[in-house]
């Protein structure tokens, strides 16, 4: 499954957010969208999922314009998890996950054996078996996030889009979610495209990285080539030191300070 954009221009009202974006996400890989606040990365993700109608340009899924697909057809091939969704009251985890089967159903075929199978599979993949009977409202943040991902898995598309799936989670649960996503990518071959805030996590989990700066693509490629000290200056207006992560060898970014600083503020007060 290849997701790509051609000449994509996105606006909110009259305000242009992204202009003339040409992108192709590698199939079967984890791609990460990074950039400073307001650079348009969430907007781009929404357009990829057809939650936002482009002002101009086209989003293609396997060579077909997504605007031409029926909503259910698109949802069978591609799923999106928006940022911090809210669960309705009084639903158990299993009830919630069952909603993921929506694009595979019609009003007269609402619960096939296949639906049942995929719900159980999704619950098993996200390790929610022991929590499946619980009310969603009683789950912790990390458990709830797994339940949301389980909806996408019950939906069973080959491409998953996620908007900051680790927001509001502590570090251990952030890694738990990211490990789960990588596992889904490696074992099931899901193409994953997600917005991440943490650059080092983006380097660690992303096979591919697209860096956005004020509505334009600054760079696109493997993290090893995109994460550089120059990029940090141009995009985030930060002086930094990029080194190889001692555990995995991926780029690791040590921020130093705003443009022009040569040593971290802490170091300067001591010295």
């Amino acid at each position: 499954m290849t997701l790509s954009t051609q000449n994509l221009t996105l606006t909110y009202g009259d305000r242009a957010i992204l202009q003339n974006i040409d992108l192709a996400f590698p199939p079967g890989k984890i791609s990460v969208l990074v950039g400073p606040n307001g650079c348009g990365k969430s907007t781009l993700l929404r357009a990829l999922a057809r939650l936002l109608k482009p002002k101009a340009g086209v989003v293609y899924l396997d060579g077909q314009a997504i605007a031409k697909l029926s909503p259910q057809e698109l949802a069978r091939r591609q799923g999106i998890l928006p940022q911090s969704p809210t669960a309705p009251e009084g639903l158990t985890v299993r009830d919630l996950v069952a909603q993921g089967r929506y694009p595979h159903q019609t009003w007269w075929r609402q619960w096939s054996a296949e639906d049942e199978h995929w719900v159980e599979t999704a619950i098993a993949l996200t390790h929610l078996e022991s929590l499946a009977h619980r009310d969603v409202a009683t789950l912790s943040g990390g458990q709830r996030q797994r339940a949301w991902i389980a909806i996408l898995l019950a939906q069973n598309p080959s491409t998953l889009l996620l908007d900051e799936p680790t927001t509001y989670l502590d570090l251990a649960h952030q890694l738990e979610i990211l490990d789960l996503l990588r596992d889904l990518n490696r074992r099931l071959g899901k193409t994953i495209i997600m917005v991440l805030h943490d650059l080092n996590q983006a380097c660690r989990y992303g096979d591919w990285m697209t860096v956005l700066r004020s509505g334009q693509i600054y760079a696109s490629g493997p993290p090893q080539t995109t994460v550089t000290e120059t990029m940090m200056r141009d995009v985030f207006a930060l002086e930094s030191h990029i080194m190889a992560d001692p555990v995995l060898g991926m780029p690791l970014c040590i921020p130093i300070g705003p443009l022009g600083t040569t040593a971290p503020a802490v170091g300067r007060t001591r010295g």
Partner: peptide
Amino acid sequence: CLLGRELDVLALGDDLAQGLGSR
């Protein structure tokens, strides 16, 4: 009653409902 399923996905919020293929 037939539209109950639509109501269930709408209750997840517009973005997620749309992402699941709901009009």
